[in-house]
Design a protein around this nucleic acid. Sequence first.
DNA 1: TTATCATTTGAGTATCTGTTCAGGAGTTCG
DNA 2: CGAACTCCTGAACAGATACTCAAATGATAA
Lengths: 126, 126
Amino acid sequence: MEVVAGLDTCVTVEPDEARVAATRDRLVTPSEAARLADLFRLLGDQTRAQLLYALLEAGELCVCDLAETVEVSDTAVSHALRLLRTAGIVAGRRSGRMIYYRLADAHVRMLLDLSREHLRHEIVEG
Amino acid sequence: MEVVAGLDTCVTVEPDEARVAATRDRLVTPSEAARLADLFRLLGDQTRAQLLYALLEAGELCVCDLAETVEVSDTAVSHALRLLRTAGIVAGRRSGRMIYYRLADAHVRMLLDLSREHLRHEIVEG
DNA sequence: TTATCATTTGAGTATCTGTTCAGGAGTTCG
DNA sequence: CGAACTCCTGAACAGATACTCAAATGATAA
């Protein structure tokens, strides 16, 4: 806990190296953080978020109904769904000309639920 | 449930207008979705995610320790923290020259926890 | 005071991203 | 077959974004 010499960052105080090392051990690894960030980034777009919450409510919707619900173009929905599909967040089922999409990940469903509650409580509490 | 005429999208099948309208009623509003997307977007960056998970483990860390833990520049950490601080996700406490940051939102803490579990289970299950 | 340290801020820049547009692939029906 | 419909794909463009660098702020110590 003494002063450490010869480094370039805040080295004159105690909880430095030991604390950083201890935290880094239990921490998510950089690649885990990258994967988590990838997941959050997919939810972090208004169009995709609306699509996911629509699927959360309706269970299953085709692209054109999703486009109408969210009020964006079919093409934009299709691009958005491709990202979500590639990540395993949604899955599609073909029926004739239509493709019905649904949520395909229980954990994501929980994340959507939890954060919606977060928002509603936040509004109440101010 | 009959065929509806005179519209521009998939109108030849049943669950169209009624289903869209019903979904849209119970749905999060566009502005709610925007706020939720804003929240997720903040978590959707590797640097910020690592910072948040570091704070989740350590409880409280100063900027320079965060920079060392996450291995990015102090300036980049400061920019990242400003976004998180503005959104109310983290809060800072000044002590001398240092500013110690901590998680400031219980719901975000739950989101971080839940999604970390999601990742670890996903890896086990394939 | 001056010097040093921790953090912040603003500008500049390169990269990423979400949309639109035009066209293609797959399906159904006449 | 061809027409109509649903959906997907790729290119291109505008806007967002995350970093670096240089400079400023706030605090401690000599």
